[in-house]
């Protein structure tokens, strides 16, 4: 099952990267597709056990729906983060109070934790340094709360609900 997942995934990526349509006539070039199928099967057989994981097939549609809600929200936070950083960089006094704080997450799934760490890195003023079990160490450019509970409330809570709906 894992091998088939990886085969389909790599064939889709191959198809999008090669885009085997003729630029003038718009016909499908069969040679590229056959080469892609062969390579996808080889990759799936060789690396399927090592890379891919079982797809979580329960509640697929609700997961996809929340993912589609989550991505624009993160992009919006990214834009706000950039305006914040630009303000701090061009301000002549550079108003920064940096420090590393420790926050706690309730997510269990490794993929969910990875997404949480990436989201934290892209949102205003925070950068994940390390993950140890359920604690994340976060470098914060403008520290507003030094203890674990306050920092968790300010940094993690806005993503955690959505990520739990997507990954668990």
């Amino acid at each position: 099952m894992r091998k088939i997942t990886l085969m389909i995934f790599s064939f889709v990526i191959w198809f999008l990267l090669v885009w085997p349509f003729d630029p003038v006539t718009g016909k499908l070039g069969l040679q590229s597709v056959i080469a892609g199928v062969v390579v996808a099967i080889l990759v799936g057989l060789l690396f399927g056990d090592k890379i891919a994981r079982e797809l979580p097939l329960s509640r697929v549609f609700s997961r996809i729906f929340w993912l589609l809600v989550y991505v624009p929200m993160v992009l919006w936070y990214v834009v706000i983060a950039n305006l914040d950083v630009v303000y701090r960089v061009v301000h002549p006094d550079m108003p920064i109070h940096p420090g590393i704080v420790k926050v706690k997450t309730t997510l269990k799934n490794p993929a969910g934790r990875t997404m949480l760490a990436n989201s934290i890195t892209l949102t205003p003023g925070t950068l994940t340094v390390d993950i140890v079990d359920e604690y994340l160490y976060v470098h914060w450019i403008n520290v507003q709360a030094e203890d674990v509970e306050g920092a968790t409330k300010k940094i993690v809570s806005k993503f955690e609900g959505m990520l739990r709906r997507i990954f668990e």
């Binding site: 109070h97 940096p98 420090g99 590393i100 704080v101 420790k102 340094v129 390390d130 160490y137 520290v143 030094e146």
Partner: peptide, 10 residues
Amino acid sequence: LWEKSVVDKF
């Protein structure tokens, strides 16, 4: 960390 940093939990 920078010398004016506030807190270092790491």
